[in-house]
């Protein structure tokens, strides 16, 4: 009988390979559950979960909420835009007020790096990091690697390239940790201004030529250009970015092999990826969304299992 080696999901960095494998196995079962006529199990009916989103999110929030509801947990939602945070309340006060309502687990997205870890040290609840600034987004990496495993049978030994705005991407960092843990080979590709210094210290390579990167890979994970996090110009124009780092059908047809195309969403169509690629047979973007619910159910279930009933 197995369980996760961690009490909170703060980042992939804290996980072991066995943890990821346990999450995948559990997610396989939940994937079967969410394809039933009645897509719900009663496991977590005595658990209450708060989804705290201090930063905008559509799919992650919906995906978590659906995963929690499919497990029969009680769910409360909170967005920073309509809360007392605007009135100057601190993070710990906000969360402790919510926990006073007997909440067992907190799913939090926050613009500051380390917010989830900070919270885990100061409050009595299981914490799931749903994205902390430009640091980590563990459940995205779990669903991405789960989708690769589903499509290609295994992640081990596969060549995966992460393309685009690596500098501002929490998805990239979590993916790199997860892919390395599972024994994949990883490259990042993008304009030098959007590739962090010293990223090779994570045991990965940098490739500045998109065509070479695509030729090398089995899987291309294309990141969104995060205009909202760019305080200065990182490249001369969107048009130039698209010409050098936009993935289009012409590039893919030149490869002479099938590669898997992924994108964590939301897509800037015509910027980092063209519509014909996003909607093609190469793309597993919508599978990623479906797998997002199954893998998040697995994470929530496995963490809830550790909460002993009094």
């Amino acid at each position: 009988m197995k369980q996760l080696s961690v009490p909170h999901l703060l980042g992939i960095k804290n996980l072991k390979r066995e943890d990821l494998e346990l999450i995948y196995e559990t997610a396989d079962h939940f994937k079967e559950v969410i394809n039933r006529p009645i897509k719900k199990v009663p496991s977590l009916r005595d658990i209450t979960i708060a989804n705290l989103f201090f930063e905008n999110s559509t799919r992650t929030k919906l995906s978590f909420e659906l995963a929690e509801k499919r497990l029969s947990a009680d769910v409360i939602n909170f967005s920073a835009s309509q809360s007392s945070v605007k009135k100057g309340e601190t993070l710990i006060d906000t969360v402790n007020n919510i926990l006073a309502m007997k909440v067992d687990m907190v799913v939090m997205r926050h613009p500051n790096v380390g917010a989830a870890e900070f919270l885990s040290q100061h409050v009595e609840a299981r914490i799931i990091n749903a994205g902390d600034g430009t640091h980590e987004h563990p459940t995205q990496a779990i669903l991405d690697t789960y989708s690769i495993r589903e499509k290609l049978g295994s992640v081990t030994g596969k060549n995966v390239v992460i393309i685009g705005d690596v500098l501002h991407s929490r998805v990239a960092l979590s993916n790199i940790y997860a892919l390395k843990l599972l024994g994949a080979k990883v490259k990042v590709c993008g304009p030098p201004s959007l590739i962090p210094k010293h990223i090779t210290s994570l045991g990965i390579e940098v490739e500045y030529n998109l065509e070479k990167a695509l030729q090398w890979c089995d899987v291309a994970n294309i990141l969104r250009v995060q205009h909202e996090r760019m305080d200065v110009k990182y490249f001369p124009s969107t048009r130039e970015y698209t010409q050098l780092y936009g993935v289009n059908m012409h590039l893919l047809s030149k490869l002479g092999k099938e590669i898997v195309v992924m994108h964590p969403g939301p897509i800037n169509r015509g910027v980092e990826i063209t519509s014909d690629v996003a909607d093609s047979g190469h793309s597993i973007i919508l599978n990623q969304v479906e797998n997002g619910v199954a893998t998040r159910m697995a994470v929530v279930y496995l963490l809830a299992q550790q909460i002993k009933r009094e």
């Binding site: 009988m1 369980q3 559950v33 006529p37 496991s43 977590l44 009933r309």
Partner: peptide, 26 residues
């Protein structure tokens, strides 16, 4: 598989592990 429907979730010392369900019909 009945793991997710059991009434002893979080009451056991040992975690519960699920098995495969395969019912391909309604």
């Amino acid at each position: 598989d009945i793991t997710f429907y059991r009434d002893d979730f979080r009451r056991r010392d040992e975690p519960l592990q699920a098995n495969t369900t395969s019912i391909d019909f309604i």
